[in-house]
Write a protein that binds this DNA or RNA. Structure first.
Lengths: 108, 108
DNA sequence: TCACTCCCATAGACTGTCTATGGATGAAGG
DNA sequence: CCTTCATCCATAGACAGTCTATGGGAGTGA
């Protein structure tokens, strides 16, 4: 087996959700997800930045450069209106999929 | 978006679960999952048979040929002891992952 | 005989994750 | 100063698991 920390297809959703609380830079997003999940989810940079690129291309987030809290250069990402809608859609589909899988798992 | 019917990595688990109730052939497994999930999950043959191959290689299922209920040739798959253990592990990891994601989704 | 469903299986495309790598920059301690 | 460490960005390539598309054999009913 593979130690897939982040289940396929859920990263974009979690990134969007994390940004829903306000703009953040990549590093901050990763930290936040790690922390909020009780250190269960570890977002690798090699997963995160491609994800952010996808979200940018699709117009679900916007980015701009600015100084970080520690006075380093940082790229702040923020949710767009389209991103907010997309988040809702993905949350719904996620719940629907989970419910379906649970039904399979609970079929005695 | 992509219409990913089956979330990554969950197919093996659902197949194992479906076989936990007794031996079935491939076609029957797909039907059962489709039915039990309330027609939400659609297992494509191009996903199912590679999955069954994986499970065979790993020793989690065993297979033997025999006539189907409709008198056609069919390959019956059944869970091994190792497969039963694996199913438990995957169910646990699944719940753990879902719980972590939910925490992210519920972080206001 | 023809169409249809059942049942098997593989090849190749595609997507999204991971590992590995590379770099810049500020803070802290020697 | 200078070294080390944490922060912060990003890409390339490997890899795994899903899907689409394809092909075929075999029993059933019209």
């Amino acid at each position: 087996m593979k130690r897939s920390e982040i289940p396929y297809g859920t990263l974009d959703m979690m990134v969007l959700k994390t940004l829903a609380a306000g703009p953040k830079h990549g590093y901050g997003i990763a930290q936040r997800i790690h922390q909020v999940s009780g250190s269960v989810l570890q977002v690798e940079e090699g997963s995160l930045y491609p994800a952010l690129q996808r979200l940018l291309v699709k117009g679900w987030v916007r980015a701009e450069w600015g100084p970080s809290e520690n006075n380093r250069r940082a790229r702040y990402y923020q949710l767009t209106a389209a991103g907010r809608k997309q988040l809702e859609i993905e949350e719904m589909e996620f719940e629907k999929a989970i419910a379906a899988i649970r039904q399979v798992l609970q079929s005695a």
